[in-house]
Design a binder for these strands. Structure first.
Lengths: 198, 198
DNA sequence: CTTCTCATGTAATTCGTTACATGATTCT
DNA sequence: AGAATCATGTAACGAATTACATGAGAAG
């Protein structure tokens, strides 16, 4: 029942419309943000696992070439939604940041805005808590670390600060920045805009 | 000859002094920045691979308990240095960022400052080139992406902007910020917690 | 004297990587 | 005709994860 990240990525791509294994691979190849492999030895076995679970269906596609059209079915859609709606754990934030962002990216296709807001709230909360841990550790041990170790640690710190800032901004964009629990909307600078593009 | 990231991490930890498998696991557990597992099923097999390659030596440690003291030997030191001095490729920057930072963190123990500078120069160059690719892709396709996809992509962009800023700052700190090109005024450019784009 | 921590491992499973294999079709 | 691309796979291997196993000393 589990499913790897690559499987869910393929599921999400198929959620945008039926495709073939070959075209899915091409999408993985051409996307510049490639955390995942596009090798046939990864993609095709993953697709067959999805077929075995009946999360997708295969049908020979019209055309001269040997080609299978893969299509996300209802079971697959449900499995994908279940994955997307998983709670954001500390473990996810610490060790599977890329997977979390993939989940968020794929949410737009099927889930409604409130689900995005829920995700971002949890993401923000766990990120803030983790940042606090990191900061504490940093002030406690920075003096003892060798220079390169300290710098590397500070790189990690900056990465999670970006996560925090991004979550705040994303909450504003998707419309969950103001209301909700314990966030006093009386302060007018909560919707402060920074770093707009274009 | 290959070696996994975890193996090199263990090698690096042993470079700071002999230890036992159990203590190595504890170090992995207690570090807040844990990209790696501390499970015995990962650590002990990795240590046995290192033993098989004769990169470390084992000796029963004095004391009442059953305990092995593992010690990095010359072959292991050479293998670690070889790994640390590997060139920074685009592939590394795109898909193995955490491994790169681990390499940098472990450099402080054995390599000299010029090696750190070389690493950071390559890191900076590849990061800048990759950022250019990402930026181009972003301006070309941002309008077509769904909202959550666009936001996730911008998260990735911000991550690599942090990498760029960190590399610049690290170069200044380790003393390689002046040569080559660009400026290096002695004024501390505390690029704190904000990556902005033009 | 039982429980906790120390300290080391094994087994089953899963997945990704690398490399190779195979035809068919389109291009030149 | 030959090369490139399309389109799908397989095989061998390495490594991580989870869960379980074991025995001994320390602590209450």
């Amino acid at each position: 029942m589990a499913g790897s990240t690559l499987e869910y990525l393929l599921l999400g791509l198929l959620g945008q419309g039926p495709s073939s294994g070959y075209d899915l691979r091409k999408q993985l190849t051409l996307t510049p943000m490639r955390h995942h492999s596009d090798s046939p030895g990864a993609v095709y076995p993953a697709l067959r696992r999805l077929l075995r679970r009946r999360w997708i269906d295969a049908a020979p596609a019209g055309g001269a070439r040997r080609r299978q059209e893969l299509r996300l079915n209802d079971r697959g859609r449900a499995a994908l939604a279940l994955w997307l709606k998983r709670p954001v754990t500390r473990e996810d934030v610490v060790r599977h940041g890329a997977e979390l962002l993939l989940r968020f990216a794929l949410m737009g296709g099927t889930l409604q805005p409130p689900a995005l807001v829920r995700f971002l709230r949890q993401y923000q909360q766990e990120t803030l808590a983790y940042l606090e841990v990191l900061r504490r550790y940093h002030t406690a041990t920075a003096a003892l670390m060798p220079l390169s170790g300290r710098l590397a640690f500070e790189h990690g710190l900056a990465q999670y600060q970006v996560c925090r800032d991004w979550a705040r901004r994303a909450l504003v964009v998707v419309g969950g920045g103001a209301q909700g629990h314990e966030e006093a909307p009386s302060s007018p600078d909560s919707t402060r805009k920074r770093g707009k593009q274009r």
